[in-house]
Write a protein that binds this DNA or RNA. Structure first.
Length: 472
RNA sequence: GGUGGAGUGGCUGAGCGGCCCAAAGCAACAGCCUGCAAAGCUGUAAACCCACGGGUUCAAAUCCCGUCUCCACCUCCA
């Protein structure tokens, strides 16, 4: 398959470094606030990529970190009057809950920055030994990376170091050059002692860039297949990661992937505009499966716009797919696959080539809808064999995309509960009564039942072989 | 100033030299189905030829040049 490598600025054929295995590192959140739609999109993109690679038979190791120590974490915790680690953990849990709601699978490893101080300090030592890092000249415990010495600096974002704006003129503090960046931060007087780790430079805590390099190589080795993250992280974060890891002698990522950002109503999300849409907002406006459909409906590298009707459109579109699956499964039974290989065989070629071409999700969804239409047509024509083929295809696609409505991830707290059994028997009785009224041409009565149910959020669907119901 | 991305039907959104008189979804309209609906299917209309102007080519939405507009990033602290 081909993937767009941001560093090479072109599509490249993806070949795993080690046959049959893929190592992926994705920048996770700094847990200093509640998850918003941008965080969710990023996590979702790599979840789908991971599922696709797995569907192709590759063994994927996905690492997504949690930045649980950072200036903002300390600042917010201090404002809230709670310990920084409590604040970080609270938001980490919120992120995980939002990921689960969206059906995003847990990463293979989910390292926290604070759990990898040793690895980070080792990396700092290697950089100092190699002459690419130095302790601050003002005697503080800050440690900087010598960007000006690393000749390849700027290779990820195609910038020349001499073109970079030195806006920090006069704010060098202990830096030799304004473009040098912080690897390790000296503890400040007002910061809690729990946010400090002793080092030979003095007490301090890790800089953001250092964390990711240390954790990526800790779990994936000195060279690994894919490094992903949001487009806003390209510079300086990823540029710095690349520089420090390479300067330390690690080859680092083979592919750099960047997902596009989410706009709200055509505008960038920002605190000052007050238009940030959080996971909690999203889930009150749409069912999780519809939210997932929406977040995956644009190409992963495009800007995704959350406009007024976007979620309603996604809801309609996924309902169509759900409707077909429910209808086909009533008639033909649920399609179960023997395994990944069996499932992969059922995927239409248009879907496979779309996914293989830089994860072209809009084209993949087009293939999905095409199969749904063909499947519905086959059911209408009572061509069961043809319908079965489409049912298999749709089930396989929806599995790969994480949009299978039958998946247990969407039905937390539902299923075989006493409530749902009670509802089922009530519905059975009401449907029987309505059908009796219809047979007697008492349409006033039958429509009253239908309207009443609709007001309660229950849709009826009259099929040739009986009446079905669903909750919207 | 530098780097990168984008401008396609009413909306969303693929396509990035010929298969494009441009996928798919949403919205609209009509027919079939239905007691009537819903769902489904079929069809229609919808992009004054894909921001604008020029060029290359047998052939351009797709390549080149210019212009306009929009977006992202350009070092912790933003």
């Amino acid at each position: 398959m081909n993937l767009y490598d941001s560093k090479a600025q072109t599509l490249r054929e993806f070949v795993p470094l080690k046959a049959g295995e893929v190592g992926m590192y994705v920048c996770g959140p700094t847990v200093q606030g509640a998850p918003h739609v941008g965080h969710l999109r990023s996590a979702l993109v790599y979840d789908i990529l991971r599922r696709w690679l797995a569907a192709k038979g590759l063994r994927v190791t996905l690492v997504r970190n949690v930045t649980d120590i950072d200036d903002k974490v300390l600042e917010k915790a201090s404002e809230a009057g709670v310990p920084w680690w409590a604040l970080a953990y609270q938001f980490e849990q919120e992120f995980n809950a939002a990921y689960r709601t969206l059906g995003i699978e847990a990463p293979t490893y989910e390292p926290r920055a604070t759990g990898h101080i040793t690895e980070m300090l080792e990396l700092v030592d290697r950089l100092i030994d190699a002459g690419y890092a130095y302790q601050a000249t003002d005697g503080s415990a800050d440690v900087y990376f010598k960007a000006s010495k690393w000749a390849s600096y700027g290779e990820l974002t195609n910038q020349r170091i001499e073109d970079m704006v030195d806006d920090a003129e006069g704010q060098l503090r202990g830096k030799l050059d304004a473009r040098d960046f912080t690897l390790w931060k000296a503890a400040k007087p007002n910061e809690p002692v729990t946010a400090q780790w002793p080092t030979r430079f003095g007490a301090g805590r890790p800089g953001w860039h250092l964390e990711c390099s240390a954790m990526a190589t800790r779990y994936l080795g000195a060279r690994f297949d894919i490094h992903g993250g949001g487009l806003d992280l390209r510079f300086p974060h990823h540029e710095n990661e690349l520089a420090q890891s390479r300067a330390a002698g690690d080859e680092f990522a083979n592919f750099w992937l960047h997902n596009g950002l989410v706009n709200v109503g055509g505008q960038k999300m920002s605190k000052s505009l007050g238009n940030s849409t959080f996971a909690s907002d999203l889930f009150t406006q749409a069912r999780p499966i519809a939210a997932r459909y929406f977040l995956g409906s644009a190409h992963y590298r495009s800007v995704l716009d959350l406009h007024d009707s976007a979620l309603a459109e996604a809801e309609s579109a996924i309902s169509r797919v759900e409707g077909f699956l429910a209808r086909a499964e009533r008639k033909l039974g649920r399609r179960d696959f023997e395994g990944h290989h069996d499932r992969y065989q059922q995927l239409p070629t248009a879907f496979v080539s779309a996914m293989d071409e830089d994860l072209n999700l809009p084209a993949a969804l087009a293939a999905l809808h095409e199969a749904v239409r063909a499947g519905n047509a086959a059911l209408d024509a009572h061509e069961d064999a043809a319908a079965q083929v489409e049912l298999s295809a749709v089930t396989a696609m929806v599995d790969v995309l994480g949009l299978n409505p039958n998946s247990s991830v969407w039905s937390v707290g539902q299923g075989d509960s006493a409530e749902s059994k009670a509802l089922g028997s009530l519905m059975e009785a009401l449907i029987a009564e309505r059908n009796l009224a219809r047979a007697n041409k008492d349409f006033a009565r039958s429509d009253a039942i239908r309207d009443q149910l609709k007001a309660a959020g229950i849709q009826l669907e009259d099929a040739a072989d009986g009446t079905n119901w669903s909750i919207s």
